[in-house]
Simulated assay, not measured.
Amino acid sequence: MTTYAALLRGINVGGHRKVPMAELRRLIEGLGHGDVRTHLQSGNAVFSVVGRNAAGVTTESLAASLGEAVEEHFGFTVPVLVRDHAYLRAVVEDCPFPTAGLEGRQLHVTYLSEPVDADRFAALDRSAFLPDEFRIGDRALYLYVPDGLGRSRLAEALGRPALWRDTVATSRNWNTVTRLVEMTRD
């Protein structure tokens, strides 16, 4: 049995693209997955894949089937990333910022569908955004914003669609990042 987290991008924000968590859980169960749980209303679902359903499964195939099911059921497209416990744990362990004493709103991880390199951000003058900082990880971008995301000019600059060229990106605060590690523990 392997436990995964599905990260749905941009649902239940400002009354748009509403996906009730109870319906999402039923939808995932309908795909043949077990132990389905959700966290918050922002598109975090945890589920297990067992038996013959696990044969040949990849995080990409799981994301694609869930994305298709969401579109069929709710009538709109939602980008979906799926990650297993080992990856989620590695993201926490590899965090380049000290996490002790931080509030969840001060540190965020943007999960990415593919690796990115520093060249993508070459046009950003990082020193102009201090004390806000970011670092690149394995299909993840770590964003440290001591005054919170809502006040961060760096977060705004990093949110520009041109930076992400065909890359699915969805962010979670540090509290959610660590909670997903706990929830996916086998």
Rank of each mutant, 00 (worst) to 15 (best):
Met21Val: 09
Gly56Val: 02
Val92Thr: 05
Arg120Val: 10
Ala155Cys: 03
Trp174Val: 12
Pro146Thr: 07
Arg83Thr: 05
Asn44Arg: 08
Tyr144Gly: 00
Gly75Cys: 03
Glu71Cys: 10
Ala55Val: 14
Gly101Asn: 11
Thr170Asn: 06
Val78Gln: 00
Glu114Trp: 00
Val19Trp: 04
Arg139Lys: 15
Gly67Ile: 06
Glu68Arg: 13
Thr99Leu: 13
Leu141Glu: 03
Pro98Leu: 11
Arg9Ser: 04
Leu141Met: 06
His108Ala: 03
Glu60Tyr: 06
Arg17Gly: 07
Trp174Cys: 08
Gly32Lys: 15
Gly148Asp: 10
Pro115Ile: 01
Ala5Met: 07
Ala169Leu: 02
Glu114Asn: 07
Asp84Lys: 14
Leu149Asp: 09
Thr110Gly: 04
Arg26Lys: 13
Asp147Met: 03
Gly137Glu: 13
His33Ala: 02
Leu158Asp: 01
Leu154Glu: 07
Asn53Asp: 11
Val92Gln: 05
Ser113Phe: 02
Val168Cys: 04
Phe97Cys: 00
Ser152Leu: 00
Met21Lys: 15
Pro96Trp: 10
Arg89Met: 03
Asp119Arg: 15
Ile11Arg: 15
Val109Lys: 08
Phe134Ala: 04
Leu8Pro: 00
Leu158Ser: 05
Ser171Phe: 00
Leu124Arg: 11
Cys95Asp: 06
Glu103Ile: 02
Leu130Ala: 09
Leu158Phe: 01
Pro115Tyr: 10
Glu68Ser: 09
Gly30His: 15
Leu163Ser: 00
Leu62Lys: 12
Trp174His: 15
Asn175Ile: 02
Leu149Cys: 09
Ala54Leu: 09
Val46Asn: 06
Val82Asp: 10
Asn173Val: 10
Gly56Ile: 12
Arg185Lys: 13
Arg135Phe: 12
Glu23Ala: 05
Ala140Thr: 14
Gln41Ser: 12
